[in-house]
């Protein structure tokens, strides 16, 4: 039996444009990225560049005078530490709370209902949560009334218009976010892995240390970064629940005051750039630590 091979196309023919683009990794599906890329360019990159340039065009003085002004005035540069002192503990606490709860919840049947409930605070927005907390935690709020009623406290505990009000609101608005991310990472781990570790002699704590933790760290690092950035840019609750002139004068308040009280957009841009730089330093540090861990598929083979 003979097999007739179809005639080859003329060898000299140049591949079509589509083929050449496909060879370079640009097929039609990839082109679908273009609108999103344009969107990001217009709404993020352009304002960022604009702000960056603006920050070097101060109302008076040289190109760097905004920055020198910021770092020579403790009223301004202290906001970096103040914000950090709110954002870091709140994020760490949220991570610490989310992890055990995610472990407990991953096998529950009402996991779906719970995650739905937890999404609600995210949709409410920080202002509404701050308003609610203001009355709930206030001197006449339910919490203080209950505490006094039960005799646990002689007078109202002060939880608003200070550090704790802002801290609590950061925990409440940040937790669902951290929890949902953590839950998805925890449930992404094949349950056969801890089972295998158990048959090899690892009890629960060693399963956590040797199997769960190393596999979770890369995901948790991402969750940490997102939650931290969110917390570091706290503004409404710092104003509503905190003491915006003192202990909770966060960096976004400084930027706001520069922009809308002193009408110094250039200074405000400089503060925003400093804020971005601080966030970037933390994110880069965390992501650099993440590189030390395994980041491949969470599966366990070809299952």
């Amino acid at each position: 039996m003979t097999i007739h091979v179809a005639d080859h196309p003329p060898a000299a023919a140049r591949p079509t444009l589509r083929r050449r683009m496909a060879a370079a990794g640009w097929d039609r599906t990839t082109l679908l990225v273009v609108p999103a890329a344009l969107f990001v360019l217009l709404l993020f990159i352009y304002p960022f560049i604009y702000g960056l340039i603006l920050s070097f065009e101060p109302m008076k003085g040289g190109a760097f005078s905004n920055y020198t002004a910021f770092f020579s005035d403790p009223y301004l540069y202290d906001t970096i530490g103040t914000t950090m002192w709110l954002a870091l503990p709140a994020t760490v606490l949220n991570m610490a709370l989310a992890m055990p709860i995610a472990f407990r919840v991953r096998n529950l049947r009402w996991q779906r209902a719970l995650t739905t409930i937890l999404v609600i605070p995210i949709t409410l927005g920080t202002v509404l949560v701050a308003e609610g907390l203001l009355t709930y935690l206030g001197p006449q709020g339910w919490l203080n009334r209950t505490l006094i009623e039960l005799g646990l406290s002689s007078g109202p505990v002060r939880l608003t218009h200070n550090y704790w009000g802002v801290f609590l609101s950061l925990v409440i608005t940040g937790f669902p976010f951290v929890f949902l991310l953590t839950l998805s990472y925890v449930t992404g781990i094949d349950p056969a892995l801890p089972a295998a570790a158990a048959t090899l002699g690892a009890g629960p704590s060693r399963q956590f240390r040797h199997i769960f933790l190393p596999l979770l760290v890369p995901g948790l690092a991402i969750a940490f970064c997102l939650a931290f950035v969110q917390a570091y840019s706290v503004f409404p609750s710092a104003v509503l629940l905190g003491a915006p002139a003192g202990p909770t004068r966060v960096i976004s308040i400084a930027a706001y005051q520069a922009a809308f009280e002193q009408y110094d957009y250039s200074m405000a841009s400089a503060i925003a750039m400093i804020m971005a730089a601080v966030q970037l330093v933390v994110v880069v540090a965390v992501l650099a630590g993440r590189r030390l861990f395994y980041r491949g598929p969470m599966g366990s083979g070809k299952g």
């Binding site: 056969a192 089972a195 295998a196 048959t199 190393p214 596999l215 491949g296 366990s300 299952g303």
Partner: peptide
């Protein structure tokens, strides 16, 4: 202390 071989192998990916 029994050894077990899982259907999807359950090798520790990291």
């Amino acid at each position: 202390g029994f050894g077990m071989v899982f259907q999807n192998y359950a090798l520790f990916p990291h």
